[in-house]
């Protein structure tokens, strides 16, 4: 690990000023990912700006809309009564990620900015376009069992590792951001990006901006939602495939439905076409199977992750069955 400076700021403006002044400075809150990356030599910031004291640690309810501060701990948010009542999907997704110890430290903003767990990204002796642009991608012809089947490019096939992000994109969350030019709102679906020719960029957040909170609009989805994560062991493993499924049911008719997948792309993967197909239809195994087929259009596998082409639709169908409560 390189030597670095550590500074603690007490206002968003001061944090933004630190980022503007020093392009290699990084914000730190829970540090559960950044500190690991520094130990591995993957990231080497000259300065850490501690943002744990900006007052972004509250969860507020405005009618049914939830405002979750950026430094609220994952453990706190996942156990919060309003989150459990209005957005149980989010709680379930967060509880399927990491371990209790990590969730006690990790923050909402930090989770949004989690970096990929591609083994080649972590191994500084391996070429990696995300870590070192232009050096090449070791995963495309390497061990790519955990890698993308949607939206990958020939520079990067890494996946976003977060469970929380999958739920947030399904719930149409809005990321609240502050920067030198003022505040802005980024829809969750636009917050993460595909690798394209710039896999070093995970998100559309500017280097001088900070996340202040997450807003989740009210919806009628709480009664029928599930987050299903398929992984190699029962806990503390990243998703092979995960699916966030939540719907508004009237009898057995699907009035509204949201579907997103994790473990498949550089960003949490919203399944819009499958949603459109299901809207207005009956919650039935046959329709779920068809939706899964639609969802898989354009999927492309690599040497070691071909199983995802089958596991992904299977997981989606199971998640829809569980969310809707249908038996067949």
């Amino acid at each position: 690990m390189n030597n670095f400076q550590y500074t603690r700021v007490s206002s968003p403006a001061a944090a933004i000023a630190e980022l503007s002044k020093d392009p290699t400075a990084k914000l730190v809150a829970g540090g559960t990912n950044l500190i690991d990356l520094m130990k591995y030599g993957v990231m080497a910031p000259d300065k850490l700006v501690d943002i744990n004291h900006l007052g972004f640690n509250e969860i507020k309810k405005d009618n049914g809309t939830l405002h979750i501060g950026a430094t609220v701990r994952n453990a706190v948010a996942s156990g919060n009564a309003d989150v459990l009542k209005y957005q149980p999907l989010l709680s379930q997704a967060m509880l399927s990620g990491a371990s209790p110890q990590l969730r006690n430290k990790a923050t909402m903003g930090g989770n949004l900015l989690q970096r990929t767990r591609c083994g080649y990204f972590y191994d500084i002796s391996a070429p990696c376009n995300k870590r070192e642009p232009g050096s090449g991608c070791s995963a495309i012809e390497g061990y790519n069992r955990m890698h993308a089947i949607f939206g990958a490019s020939d520079t990067c096939i890494a996946v976003n590792p977060s469970d929380m992000n999958v739920a947030l994109v399904a719930l149409d969350a809005i990321i609240m951001v502050a920067g030198p030019k003022g505040n802005r709102k980024i829809p969750m679906a636009d917050f993460h990006r595909l690798p394209g020719t710039h896999p070093e960029l995970d998100t559309t957040l500017d280097k001088k901006e900070i996340i202040t909170g997450i807003v989740i609009p009210d919806n009628h989805l709480a009664a029928h939602s599930t987050y299903l994560k398929v992984r190699d062991r029962a806990s503390y493993a990243f998703a092979l495939i995960s699916v966030a499924a939540t719907m508004d049911l009237e009898g057995s008719t699907i009035k509204d439905v949201r579907l997103a997948m994790g473990g498949v792309a550089h960003k949490p993967w919203r399944l819009t076409a499958a949603e459109e197909f299901l809207k207005g239809k009956t919650a039935s195994l046959e329709n779920f199977n068809q939706a899964a087929e639609i969802a898989m259009k354009g999927a492309k596998a690599y040497e070691f992750n071909a199983f995802k082409l089958k596991l992904a639709p299977n997981t989606m169908v199971q998640a829809l069955k569980t969310a809707s409560g249908i038996k067949a």
Partner: peptide, 10 residues
């Protein structure tokens, strides 16, 4: 994180 020994839940 990547080499999976069984955890309590297993």
């Amino acid at each position: 994180g990547d080499y999976h020994v069984p955890v309590q839940a297993d």
